[in-house]
Design a protein around this nucleic acid. Structure first.
Lengths: 344, 344
DNA sequence: CTAGGGTACGTAAGCGCTTACGTAAGCGCT
DNA sequence: AGCGCTTACGTAAGCGCTTACGTACCCTAG
């Protein structure tokens, strides 16, 4: 009999269904070795009692943990919150709970968060954001994750490939290439890049795409100005100041994510530089505000919600011998922030 | 001795420190009844071994659960992601993990998420977002939360007052009043409100503030046009269309949150209506992009990160007899989206 | 010198679940 | 009929912790 004012336990269900604890457990887990008739009875009783398994007891006893940990660089960056939205959506559909952590783009702190999640025995870890160029940190994270997987943990990464785990990967290089080609086709020759921190692999990849497009179009690489800063609006503002001061001949700015692009646009506006009349601007990611900026932003669309869902899907599947990769599509979305290069 | 390839358990620590399990547990929990010398030894051994308590075992045995559940309307809405950022920050500092859920602004689904969290035995629940006008749903949630608290659970709400739990509350009405006063002082008489869903208490409160300011200034309430829609950019766009079509005499639009304001600005731009020359626009919340919109948005600043932290702080304190309230400050931030009413 | 009480620790009983193992019944086969 | 195999279920041993209770010891008071 359920104790008054307490949630029903498995024994309560078992007693009321007149079976043993083991049978009740098996029936609810959908394991076989239980006749259909008994299984039905148990499930019915469980429903009547409003029984929900205690996840702590379940996990302790060796059942699967039902929580997924998600590490992002920063939750209030739309790129990450849209990815998180996808993860949370699918997790809810699967009856999983999502534990979310942010690393603040600090590799050491991220590693600490990762260890914390592992120590807390979450079942699944999703890790999203750029990898770090620092081989030491990445190697440590990789080792930690490998050990975690050996103990039955499940892992997937979003947007980073050096971790030795299943990953969903946008083609950052192709995206960068598409942006640069678009600008070159509009006649731009003096292009500057507002890049995120030099240590992030995403930055390197997108940048490589931009460079390769310029090479393809036969432009001297020396024409490309690259300014590194934070992958944020503030970083975009700072980079813009620097570009305007040091390279006034620039006619187009490639911001390597939309957050920076937002900062770029904001600074250009306050400097009263017409966009795209005097300066074209492109971003990357297509976060949902990109369409509502003024002018609306030309950018590369990444299916962020979908990326979150796919990552969780990967982690939910049984582990494969070799890390799986899922590449995501991307799409150049041309809006109002780009136009023909001004005539000199 | 720790089993090879396994995380150390409390017994491992106890054996190595040459004390009993109970003493080790007490020492690490900082409970008294342990001599300082022994406690030190245990702590040192634990550190050497890299011991981290298994939270499932701990919770099962009756210790406090170390996870806080956070329910928000939508994670990729900056208002919520900034609040979540604050919660996650403080939680990390305290060694707590945050489980995040989103309700999609559906009261029924939110209730389901709440039950899920409770069933999962999270220790602390934070619930953020507008309450719903529907007394049925709010009463059910309230009952659920009361029972949860009676079993030792901790709860705090952010921005909703009808739940009978500790809450941190922005003064939505005063904020609405400040916005309307600002507009009236600029000479606006034909003001329209782009309001979120009529069922949300936040909407009602902010709206009440706007109305009361107009009354105070002696303007006929019939001059106020109110259009309800979703509390999103799309909702803002739709509301703007309706306002422009049905009330072309309008000179200022009050969007009841920044998301809607973003949509309002976007629509005005595509209709080539100068802001603030022909139409002034204000928002509410001061999400971080508000300053980067074009034109930058006049709005009410709410300390969202702080609100998240405060809510967790409240929930961490021992339960008080009566629900506590913390009101947050708010500040009218005047930027470029508002100006004098055009002369007729 | 002993009773009473505090302090520091150990023993062991759970928390609610999963699952290895045991067992009884039913089946087809030789 | 007797054997082994499968099926359907029960028994009980944990998972790793917390904590009520027991015990040895020392200190103080009478």
């Amino acid at each position: 009999m359920p104790r008054a004012g307490q949630r029903p336990r498995l024994v309560d269900v078992a007693e009321r269904a007149d079976v043993s604890l083991a049978t009740a457990s098996r029936a609810l887990a959908g394991r076989d070795g239980v006749s259909a008739q008994v299984a039905d009875r148990v499930r019915r009783v469980a429903r009547e009692l409003g029984y929900v398994a205690n996840p702590y007891a379940r996990t302790l006893a060796g059942g699967a943990s039902s929580t997924v940990g998600l590490i992002v660089h920063q939750v209030d960056d739309p790129y990450f919150s849209e990815i998180a939205g996808g993860v949370i959506q699918l997790a809810a559909e699967q009856g999983l709970l999502v534990q979310i952590c942010q690393s603040g783009r600090d590799p050491a702190y991220e590693l600490q968060q990762l260890r914390h999640l592992i120590a807390q025995r979450v079942g699944i870890i999703l890790i999203s954001g750029s990898g770090y160029d620092d081989p030491r940190v990445e190697a440590e994270a990789r080792a930690e994750l490998a050990a975690f997987q050996d103990h039955g943990g499940r892992v997937a990464a979003i947007g980073r490939h050096a971790l030795g785990v299943d990953a969903v990967l946008p083609d950052n290089e192709a995206g960068g290439r598409a942006l640069a080609q678009h600008l070159v086709d509009l006649g731009h020759r003096r292009i500057a890049v507002a890049a995120g921190s030099a240590g992030l692999t995403t930055v390197a990849d997108r940048l490589a795409g931009v460079s390769s497009a310029l090479r393809q179009r036969g432009l001297p690489p020396s024409d490309l100005v690259v300014v590194h800063g934070e992958f944020t609006r503030g970083g975009g503002r700072a980079a813009t100041e620097q570009i305007l001061n040091e390279h006034p001949e620039t006619t187009a700015i490639v911001a390597l994510n939309d957050a920076m692009a937002t900062g770029v646009l904001s600074t250009l506006r306050s400097r009263r530089i017409p966009v795209p009349g005097r300066m074209s601007v492109v971003g990357f990611d297509d976060v949902s505000v990109a369409a509502d900026l003024a002018p609306s932003l030309t950018t590369i669309r990444l299916p962020m919600t979908e990326m979150g869902r796919t990552a969780l899907t990967l982690a939910l599947k049984p582990r494969s011998a070799r890390p799986r990769r899922r590449s995501t599509g991307h799409l150049l979305v041309v809006r109002d922030s780009t136009g023909p290069a001004p005539v000199a």
